[in-house]
Design a protein around this nucleic acid. Structure first.
Length: 469
RNA sequence: GCCCCCAUCGUCCAGUGGCCUAGGACGCCAGCCUUUCAAGCUGGUAACACGGGUUCGAAUCCCGUUGGGGGUGCCA
């Protein structure tokens, strides 16, 4: 199905945590290009650092990717490919392109007197052979420069003299990121390397290594270094700052829709041109181009994400809304009835910004007595007992005899308001607090109608008793 | 310090030499609607970092300055 000329892209997360929103954005862009071009999307788990990887993170990455709707065509795990890296390392050493080194970090710093200076090439010509505690380093050519061909950044150029003899293999024999990454890209015949800008400084090393390895006789991949995602302080989003909220599954658990997340993420560093903002996965796939990606950092704005989410929730079909809300109602511990929720759902759907908002809007249907918000009680009942009391009395008697549907209740309440010289907005407040426990919620009369006369009256009685014991 | 990247409203995106007295969206403010809260509608707020060039003409091209960011691990 995919011919030799078709693009091959990979998303290669390291399972040192759950999927990061920045990682999700990279995955999305890779996927979009692959699907747009009829190419191949590869998922490669880069778990070469055994001490920092955990199996649950790997599963978390699979789950998050599937949640977003990003399916992959091929899958690899670096921990299962260690011979490949060992072979490459052996070849590099045999060819004199790399050398063994037994310097520790402290040794180097002691010699250079500078934490940030990099390796001083001390072992370059010591003729060390492979052995415990000896790392393999790449011998960077003294003269020349590497030019990176980057679809979003042009052609950043790095002088060889500014690149240290970087390590490829640890003293314990394990391959480092750069080695495994390049060996796999060659082996996987990757044509486009699309990743975060933080990898740009690695790219000259990547290219040097790629060429040293012969690149499998294939053309060099073309790069696209995406702008970093930053927080309000313009710092790269970090897993170490909880307020950055970078873990994708946090959003899933808080009731964000994957289509909202995908749409929002796509717009961080790219725009379809013109004034459109809401795009389906199909439209994104058709219109996305790496050449149009911006090069400046993008602020991950949770407020705007929320707006997208509200839009997508409102766009759900009524039944889909019920379906998607169900897990959130369950999680809130509500003994909810489907028929009741279905009846009120449309009025809740247009108010919810996340699915996690839903339980709090409908809990009064399923909890007896309703959970009372003390502040709302204070404000609308206790402090205004002189008006709340009579309204409750009126409601108790009028609701006892009027027809039981939203229109009749509306009318009856309007009559009470008029009788007490109040606007409907003011008059309904005590009734709402008495019946739902809160001052805000879905439209009152529909709610009352659905709740039934008996439960409404008993709640009014309870409120009256609490107001004037 | 060194290497590299970046620079349009507070934020995201549009703009690729004249259509720009710079457009859309989020946010914020105001009004309308309204049974609460939302939603919706209408209007408002607010930007081409600075300085030099190039050009008949620059937000758009070039150089510099300033500012911001990323990297600088035997992490990825």
């Amino acid at each position: 199905m995919t011919d030799a000329a078709a693009p091959r892209l990979r998303f290669s997360p390291s399972p040192t945590g759950f999927l990061h929103v920045g990682g999700a954005r990279s995955a999305l862009y890779n996927w979009l290009v692959a699907r747009h071009t009829g190419g191949t999307f590869i998922l490669r788990i880069e778990d070469t650092d055994a001490e920092r990887n955990r199996e649950e993170w790997v599963d978390g990455i699979y789950d998050s990717l599937r949640w977003l709707g990003l399916d992959w065509d091929e899958q690899y795990r670096q921990s299962e490919r260690t011979e490949l890296y060992a072979d490459a390392a052996g070849k590099l050493f045999a060819d004199g392109l790399a050398y063994y080194c037994d310097c520790t970090r402290d040794d180097v710093v002691a010699r250079t007197g500078d934490q940030n200076k990099g390796y001083d090439r001390f072992c370059r010509d010591r003729g060390l052979t492979q052995g415990p505690g000896r790392a393999l380093r790449f011998r960077v050519p003294d003269d020349g420069a590497v030019v990176v061909h980057d679809l979003v950044r042009g052609e950043p150029t790095f002088e060889h003299s500014s690149i240290e003899d970087f390590p490829l293999v640890r003293g314990n024999g394990g391959a480092l990121f750069i080695l495994a990454n390049v060996v796999d890209d060659v082996d996987n015949r990757v044509t486009h390397v699309v990743r975060g800008e933080e990898h740009l400084p690695n790219t000259p090393k990547y290219l040097l290594l790629w060429r040293a390895l012969g690149g499998g006789g294939l053309p060099e991949p073309v790069f696209a270094h995406l702008p970093v995602l930053v927080n309000e302080k313009r710092r790269k989003l970090s897993k170490r700052r909880p307020e950055d909220k970078v873990e994708l599954e946090l959003y899933r658990d808080e009731g964000y829709l994957p289509e909202a997340m995908v749409n929002y993420l796509a717009l961080l560093g790219w725009g379809p041109g013109g004034d459109r903002e809401f795009l389906s996965m199909e439209e994104l796939t058709a219109e996305f181009r790496l050449e149009d990606v911006n090069s400046s950092p993008a602020f991950f704005d949770q407020k705007k994400l929320l707006h997208f989410n509200q839009h997508y929730i409102a766009a759900l079909s009524p039944s889909a809304f019920v379906e998607q809300s169900a897990p959130f109602l369950d999680k809130a511990g509500l003994a909810w009835e489907r028929s009741v929720f279905e009846a009120i759902a449309p009025l809740v759907q247009e108010r919810a910004h996340t699915l996690a908002d839903v339980p709090g809007m409908v809990d009064f249907f399923f909890v007896e007595p309703p959970v009372l918000d003390e502040r709302d009680w204070e404000k609308h009942m206790a402090k205004r007992a002189d008006v709340a009391g009579p309204i409750l009395e009126d409601a108790l008697s009028d609701y006892g005899s009027c027809a039981w549907d939203a229109a009749a209740l509306h009318e009856a309440t309007g009559a009470i308001a008029e009788r007490r010289g109040l606007g409907l907005a003011k008059a309904q407040a005590p009734i709402r607090v008495a019946v739902t426990g809160k001052a805000v919620g879905p439209p009152l009369f529909e709610s009352l109608a659905l709740l039934g006369r008996e439960r409404v009256l008993s709640r009014l009685v309870a409120a009256r008793a609490r107001l004037a014991p």
